Amino acid sequence: MIYNFLFPTKPNTTKVSLLLLAVRIIFGILLMNHGIQKWSNFQELSAVFPDPLGIGSPISLGLAIFGELVCSMAFIVGFLYRLAMIPMIFTMIVAFFIVHANDAFAVKEMAFIYLIVFIIIYIAGPGKFSIDHIIGNELQRRKSKSYKK
């Protein structure tokens, strides 16, 4: 019992999957709030939003909203999980290393926290409680059913 706690051998246990679900919900909602704020103030922000990639402020703002709002929703439910996380991670990389590059760490700390959490959870995967897991199980069931024919 204590060995399983100290040295877990099953990374996709129900406990781990519940923890991954909790992290997805918490960090997904937190990031989604940033996207909602940007979206609701699009007109005002589009003229002054940073343009670190040289593609124009409105497009940069639109990409940030996509990464923070749309991808957060997919992240929360675990749908196309790793694909949805790429824009989220990219947005935090740009925020931390480019937009706030010369700011004090206290200013860019939130982007750093999101970045680290998203990289770790990207590696960990969505867990059992995700749409991707359901789709994966169905694909596996169909594949094994077709081999039996």
Rank of each mutant, 00 (worst) to 15 (best):
I55L: 11
L139E: 11
F75D: 00
I98S: 10
E68L: 03
V117F: 07
A22E: 08
P58M: 10
S40W: 09
I29Y: 11
P87H: 05
T91L: 04
L21N: 08
T91M: 06
L6R: 05
R82F: 05
G28P: 05
M92N: 08
H100I: 01
V77K: 05
G136D: 09
K38P: 06
G28K: 08
I123C: 14
L30F: 09
K10T: 15
Q43T: 15
G67T: 03
P11A: 12
H34L: 07
N4F: 14
S72K: 02
A101I: 01
S72V: 03
I134T: 13
I93V: 15
A22P: 08
E109A: 13
G136N: 15
L83T: 10
T91K: 01
L115Q: 07
L115P: 03
I65P: 02
F5P: 01
R24D: 08
L80C: 13
V77C: 10
I36G: 03
G125W: 09
C71Y: 05
L19S: 13
A101T: 02
A104S: 12
L115N: 05
G35I: 04
P50L: 05
W39Q: 08
K10N: 15
Y147H: 12
G127A: 12
G56R: 06
I29W: 09
F118R: 03
A106L: 05
F105D: 00
R141C: 06
Q43V: 14
L20P: 10
K148Y: 10
F118H: 07
A74F: 15
Y122H: 09
L30W: 05
A104Q: 11
A104P: 03
K108C: 00
I98H: 07
F96A: 02
Y81I: 02
F27V: 07
S60R: 00
F75K: 02
I2K: 11
L18G: 13
D51E: 04
I26G: 02
V70Y: 01
A47I: 08
H100L: 00
A84D: 02
K15D: 13
I120E: 02
Q37V: 09
G62N: 04
H34V: 02
L30I: 10
P126D: 06
A104Y: 03
I119H: 02
A22C: 12
R142G: 12
A64R: 00
